[in-house]
Amino acid sequence: MSTQFTIDDLKRILLEGAGAEEGVDLDGDILDTDFEELGYESLALLETGSRIEREFGIALDDDVFTDNRTPRALVAAINETLSALVPQA
């Protein structure tokens, strides 16, 4: 069974690495909200990407955050990377 990256993983890692903007509720409906609207600029995303790489043992492309501007898109992209690493049973 392959490792899955979930929206809860993303929220936890965002909070650990970059905190949460005042007035933004990460437990709200954020799946399709642009990261910039959530208060995360490029450096916050760089830090988030670095933490995901460490925890999940993967290497992300430099443009993963420019190609995937929302939590839903990012979660999908990371799961794609994970599934490519782990052979399916």
């Binding site: 970059a18 905190g19 949460a20 903007e21 005042e22 208060g39 830090e47």
Partner: peptide
């Protein structure tokens, strides 16, 4: 301060 500022 907001949590956004603490890690940075």
């Amino acid at each position: 301060l907001p949590s956004r500022l603490i890690p940075q």
